[in-house]
């Protein structure tokens, strides 16, 4: 994973393009990683559904178990109605993030590449997909758009703003006026916390994965090259855990945000 060439070299904050100068300079090394993960997931799904049998065996059994356990997990968070609408996004995001995280840990991801003879700057051909703020921001903003769409369709625009700004609880007389003003101001705080969510989601995932890769890179530099694998060895297991937890956390928070806004729909039905 880390560059054996220049041990302990700094993993640049922004992904670079291995096709610099050519027509494809817009393809960055982390984009290749994400496409790779997508191809792997697609092949896995096709393999699982090649010959569907009632009593699933082998790949199909594993795929069914995976999807079913994810579905049940999100069902007891979101409730049956909501999970039907939203599971396609949460399941897919969880699998994509998990696959990208674990693909990023395969040795050789950050090490295969070319060293620019002039500046001696090492440029990896591949780089962890989530160690790239564009990728995590893309997922968070997609979720934010979907969250708005689901909230509007689920509880209607009026309820959406009522949920944010309207006073909660019954008050009478003068107290009511005070409450209305107070909750109106609190509404703006709510709007602020809603807008911070995509930022927090993207930075959390990016920070954890990029920080992990940075640690591995840095540790490699502490020891002579032939021993470079030893200090980073225990951190690989931490990265495995962090990869899983961050995938779970990202989708779990998205599910909770949807539930917070859309849950009132069920009470009124």
């Amino acid at each position: 994973m880390p560059a054996a060439a220049a041990g302990g070299h700094q993993l640049p904050l922004y992904p670079e393009s291995p096709f610099e100068g050519t027509m494809f300079s817009w393809i960055s090394n982390s984009m290749i990683m994400v496409w790779l993960a997508a191809v792997i997931i697609i092949l896995f799904c096709r393999a699982a559904t090649k010959k569907l049998s009632l009593v699933p065996t082998g790949v199909q059994n594993f795929a069914e178990w995976l999807v079913e356990s994810l579905y049940n997990f999100f069902e007891n968070i979101l409730g049956t109605h909501l999970v039907k609408r939203t599971f396609w996004f949460f399941g897919a995001t969880f699998l994509l993030i998990l696959t990208v995280n674990y693909l990023g840990l395969i040795p050789g991801v950050g090490t295969i590449g070319n060293t620019d003879p002039v500046s001696g700057h090492f440029k990896g051909l591949l780089r962890g997909g989530n160690a790239d703020l564009n990728m995590t921001a893309a997922m968070s903003l997609t979720f934010f758009g979907l969250w708005l769409y689901w909230s509007f369709t689920e509880i209607g625009v009026k309820n959406f703003f009522a949920h944010i700004f309207a006073p909660k609880g019954e008050f009478s007389g003068f107290m009511k006026v005070g409450m209305i003003v107070m909750f109106f101001v609190v509404g703006f705080l709510e709007v602020l916390s809603i807008l911070i969510r995509p930022i927090a989601l993207s930075f959390r995932l990016f920070g954890n994965i990029y920080g992990g890769e940075q640690t591995l890179e840095g540790l490699m530099g502490l020891v002579p090259k032939w021993l470079a694998f030893l200090p980073a060895f225990p951190f690989y297991f931490m990265e495995l855990l962090v990869g899983l937890v961050q995938a779970l956390v990202f989708t779990l928070l998205c599910a909770v945000f949807v539930k917070l806004m859309c849950d009132h729909g069920e009470e009124e039905h």
Partner: peptide, 20 residues
């Protein structure tokens, strides 16, 4: 576990926001 993961994520998120 679910609740504590959610809040651990929020705490970590705050730290990472501050760090970045």
């Amino acid at each position: 576990l679910v609740t504590s993961i959610i809040f651990a994520a929020l705490i970590e998120g705050l730290f990472i926001l501050a760090a970045f």
